[in-house]
Amino acid sequence: MGELRSGDTSGTASVRGESAAAFTPAHADAKMRWLRRVWNAFLPILAFAVLIALWQLWVVWAGVPAFLLPAPTVIVRALIDGWPDPLAYDTWVTLQETLGGFALGCVLGFLLAIGITYSRFLERVLYPPIVASQAVPKLAIAPLFVIWLGFGILPKIIITMTLVFFPIVVTTAQGLMSVDANLIELLRSVNARPWQVFWKVRLPHALPAIISGMKIGITLAVIGAVVGEWVGAGAGLGYRVLFAQSQLQTPVTYAAILILITLGVGLFALLDAAGRLAAPWSDAADRINVTM
């Protein structure tokens, strides 16, 4: 949880810091600027520490029972006690479901986007059911996947995929189609083949948009894996949340949630860094600075 909060807020802080730096005169003292940056990075961490401290104090002083709201120290205790057995194994299971569903969702979304880009017919035929598929509550249809595919990892991967592919389709299709018409015409003027236009222009042009879609997709993938586990599983962090709750082991529930958050933020940060390497020309890579 610490990583999410501090990561999130320091991101906005760094954006603010950049704009502040832009208005500082060029001759401004470098040391002052350095201090300002440290302060900007430190502020959210401090705010978060204060919040945790207040939580701890309140639980201890008011005597809140642990099954209602465990103190931060109790949650950390549960995390240490539960590692590696069973939390490490749960993490491994959920990670596989997340990444498997994410990979399949990316492939499906990418192929659908290419179809939509190159065929007006496919665009008209595919878009309505794709959008409709997102209006269906995943938790409501998840049991169907269990009926069709059993209790193994497969139904979780499929459920995750149905969540992930949607942002990939939308952003990829938008990226592939938003190439300047004059540029396409320029390539046509030297008789370029459609695959040359795709590899040399459309795909690299779409890359920043595709990466954005994947960043949305990876956070949805963690949710998908948990939803999948909730309708039938014997392991995994989602399963652990439910199971610990039924046993009134609330600290374990919190510990599992903490790992889930870390997983989501970590995978997001990984994609963010990969995106910067893959598309350093992208404006978005400059602006959206979450991992700092």
């Binding site: 300047d180 004059n182 690299p204 020309w281």
Partner: peptide, 13 residues
């Protein structure tokens, strides 16, 4: 044909 349009449309990458 060598075409030049109003916008150079260079590839940013």
């Amino acid at each position: 044909f060598g075409f030049v349009f109003q916008e150079p449309n260079l590839l940013p990458w």
